[in-house]
Amino acid sequence: MAAVSQAPGGAQQQIALPEAFRPRTGTMESWNAAYVRVEDYLRAHRIHNRLHQSRLIQMVLERAARRHEENPALDPTTIAAEETEALMEAWFAEVLEEKGQPGDRVAVDGRVALLLCDGPERWPYAFLDEEHVPADFVQAMRTTHLNAGPDLAVSSMVPRPIDLGRITEAAGETLERFERWPILRALLLWMLFTAALAGIFYLTR
C-alpha cells in the first residue's frame, strides 16, 4: 500500500508503509497482548520517544514471531519479553564491553549505567540502536558507577566491659539470678508490695 504526499518543492512523492509484518502463527489477541507488554516494558525504561519505541517494538515482535513459528505452543507475550531481554543484554554487553558475563548481571549493570547517565532522556534515539550509538553516550555509560560506600577501611571496635563498682556488680548478679528464677522475682515483687502496704498502713495511723 502506498500514499502520495506533496514534497516542499512541489513534486509529488510516493511514501510506502514499512514492509508489512504479520505474525504467521498465534492469534491477534495474543500478539496485541505481546505488543502491549513490550511497549510497557520500554516505557518502564523511560523510553518516551514514540518513534524510537515503535521501531523497537516492531523489531522485537518480528523476532518473537519467527520464534513462535518454530514453537507455536509458547505464549507470544513470553517470547516477546524474552526477545526484549536478549536484545537489551546483547546491547548492554556491547556498550559496556561485558561480553561473556552472565546475562542478568549484564542487564543489571547496564540499567544502572543507563539510569545514572540519564541515557533515554539525553540520547532519545540511541538506546538499543545496534548501529549508531553516540560516542559520548557510550563514554557516559562506561564511566558511571553506583558507589554506595567508599572502599572499606576495616577496623576493630570491641566493647570493653565497664567496671560497675562492687555494689552495682553485686546488684547485677542478683538481678541476673532473679531473671533465671522467675519464682524469686515474683516473690520479691509480692514482698515489695506487702512492704509498701505496711508502710502506707503505718504512715497513715
Binding site: Y41, V108, D109, V112, L146
Partner: peptide, 13 residues
C-alpha cells in the same frame, strides 16, 4: 520488582 531501573539499582546495592 517491576521498575527495571529500581530493580537493577537495588540488586546492585
Amino acid at each position: 520488582v517491576l521498575d527495571p531501573y529500581i530493580n537493577a539499582m537495588h540488586v546492585a546495592l
